[in-house]
Nucleic acid binder design. Sequence first.
DNA 1: AGAATCATCTTCGTCGGATT
DNA 2: AATCCGACGAAGATGATTCT
Length: 307
Amino acid sequence: MKRNHEWINNFNEWIMSACRSNMDIKFVWSGSDAKALAYYVTDYVTKSSLSFHDSLALMIKATKDFDKKQSDSSDNIHERSRRLLLKMHNTLASQQELSGVQVASYILNFPDHYTTHEFQKIYLIGIENHLEKCLQDAKTQQENGSNMIENQTYAQIHEFEDDLDVLNEHFLIESAENNKMVFVNSRIDYQHRDNTLNNYCLYDFTSWFRKKKIDENDKRILAKTNEETTSISRGRPSNERYKFLPQHPQHFSHILMKWTKPRVPVLIGPMIPRRERDETKERYYRAILTLFVPWRTITDLCDVTET
DNA sequence: AGAATCATCTTCGTCGGATT
DNA sequence: AATCCGACGAAGATGATTCT
């Protein structure tokens, strides 16, 4: 906390280089310190560049000027009010302080905001519901173990209907080969990803991959990667492409394509339950688990959630 | 000789207009 | 209104040419 140099406020070499010399750091000692800082920051962030009494004074000045100048004019009332408003606006705008940076970026047509990352949504609730249903199925299977095989086939056949009826899992209707329409969603895309992507968890999967309709170029590139020829080609190298497993309804019509830069998954779904029943909490934690543990079949997932 | 720059090539990824 | 599709600029690679 010692200030070792009279020019410097709480100087720390390492922090300074870590944040590339962009330093406005303050150590928060006490509660009153924290309060003072909170006040300072809020005030700083929300300060209007022109305070209310200033702008009122300016508007009064504008009105006076207007009355002086325009008293003899015989324009109609609409035109007069229009001019008054314009005058007020101009007075206000001309008194507005603008920083050099603001002006420069306006003239250079810079955007109003930047985002350093692109985002991709994950809808948690559907996956959570699916998982819960599968867990229940597994439990009932265990209980009457003798009928296990029968149950399994039953579950496979009726998977779609059950999903649509019982769960609120959201499906999209998309085209497959021969203009056939199929039900798909990100869960199905993930489950039937190519075997080389086994180690991707759902979170990384959504962050790295997107679904794309196959075109001629994709076919060519897929064929080239199969040949494994390491010939040097000019131009930008193509991104990785993967097929869906044959179980996927869009196996023939769509592929997975890797982004050049990963996107940031945004989890959309229920919030962390704070004072909920344990059962709900459990459900929630299980759902989160499905995001960060690679899985393919529901049995994988059940095993993981058991442990 | 090595770097810096320019030219060319190919693919990525978004946008807006056309189409259904 | 939704979807498709082509256009186009950006990105990222190689190769050629110029500069130091």
